[in-house]
Nucleic acid binder design. Structure first.
Length: 260
DNA sequence: TCTCGTGTTTCTTG
DNA sequence: TCAAGAAACACGAG
C-alpha cells in the first residue's frame, strides 16, 4: 500500500548497498515501468556506478548514483527489495541492480509504477518542480484556502487524492483525514474549513511517518485505518457500522453517524 | 469464472 | 482554459 509513509519505508530498503558499485544491470526494456525511457542509456549509465542513497517526496522516490538519478514511483503494487546477490530475476522484477553482496530490486506485478533515469549531478527537473510537501511551510492554510476555492465543487475525498495539492496522500489516508474532520466524504471542497483540514492532513501524515514509516507497524486501533479494509467494520469512535462505497472510482469508507 | 483494487494518465464532457 | 468524471493500464487475490 505505497502511500507517503510506506514509500518512506521502502526508500531505506537499498541502504545496505550504499557506496557499493553496480556490477550488473538486469531489466525488461519492454516493461511498462520504463515507459518513455531509453533503457540502453539507463543500463550503460548504471553499470559500474556507485549507489549513493535515496530520498522521497510524497509517493515519489529518487535514488542517487555516481552517474545520475533514478526516479521511482511504486504505483499500486510496486516494491523496493534488497535480495541476496544470488537472486535470479523473477517475472515481475523489472529492474535488478546486482552488487557484489546483494541485488537491489524494483518489483511490480501490475506495472502501474514507473522508473526513469536522469544523467548528471543536478536532480531532474520533474523532481525540482514537485509541489510543497504537506509538512513544509509552503503547505499553509492560505495555500489550502486558495486551492479549496478553485476546486469548490469537487468532493473532498476525491480532492485529497490530487497529488498536485496533497503529495503522498493515498486512499486510506484520505479516508482517515475525512473521518477525523467528521464530515461526509462527498462534502464539496468549497464548504470545507481550510484550517481544520490543514491540521488533520498534517497530523495524519506526521503520525503515519512515525508509525508506518519507521517499521511498518499498524496505526492504533483508535484510527479508522484498521477497520476500513473490508465490509463489516465498525467505527472506532462510536461503534456504528461503517459504510463502504465507490466515490469517483475509489473505495471510500466512512462512519454514517460521526460523519453525518 | 468473476469481481475487486492501496495509483496515475489520458481522454471526454461541461 | 479549467475543472470534474470515467476509462484504461496489468495482474493477483479472494
Amino acid at each position: 500500500m505505497p502511500e507517503l509513509a510506506e514509500v518512506a519505508w521502502y526508500s531505506r530498503e537499498w541502504d545496505a548497498g550504499k557506496n557499493d558499485r553496480i556490477a550488473e544491470v538486469h531489466l525488461h526494456p519492454a516493461s511498462r515501468i520504463f515507459r518513455g525511457e531509453d533503457c540502453t542509456v539507463l543500463e550503460s549509465a548504471l553499470t559500474g556506478a556507485a549507489y549513493l542513497g535515496a530520498q522521497t517526496h510524497g509517493k515519489n522516490l529518487l535514488f542517487r548514483f555516481s552517474t545520475g538519478w533514478l526516479g521511482g514511483h511504486l504505483g499500486m503494487t510496486g516494491e523496493i527489495l534488497c535480495l541476496p546477490a544470488s537472486h535470479a530475476p523473477e517475472k515481475h522484477d523489472h529492474l535488478v541492480l546486482r552488487q557484489r553482496a546483494r541485488c537491489l530490486v524494483f518489483r511490480d506485478p501490475r506495472q502501474f509504477g514507473r522508473i526513469r533515469f536522469h544523467a548528471g549531478t543536478a536532480p531532474p527537473e520533474w523532481w525540482l518542480s514537485l509541489p510543497p510537501q504537506v509538512h513544509e511551510r509552503a503547505f499553509s492554510v492560505s495555500f489550502l484556502t486558495n486551492w479549496l476555492q478553485r476546486h469548490a465543487r469537487s468532493p473532498l475525498k476525491a480532492a485529497l487524492l490530487d497529488q498536485s495539492a496533497f503529495p503522498g496522500i493515498g486512499n486510506w489516508m484520505a479516508d482517515e483525514i475525512v473521518w477525523r474532520l467528521r464530515i461526509p466524504p462527498s462534502t464539496p471542497c468549497g464548504s470545507v474549513p481550510a484550517a481544520a483540514l490543514h491540521r488533520e492532513v498534517r497530523y495524519v501524515a506526521r503520525r503515519a511517518m512515525e508509525i508506518i514509516g519507521k517499521d511498518w507497524s499498524d496505526p492504533p486501533a483508535s484510527w479508522l485505518f484498521l477497520h476500513r479494509w473490508k465490509d463489516g467494520g465498525h467505527c472506532p469512535a462510536c461503534q456504528s457500522a461503517l459504510t463502504r462505497e465507490d466515490l469517483r472510482g475509489r473505495t471510500t469508507c466512512w462512519c454514517p453517524v460521526c460523519q453525518a
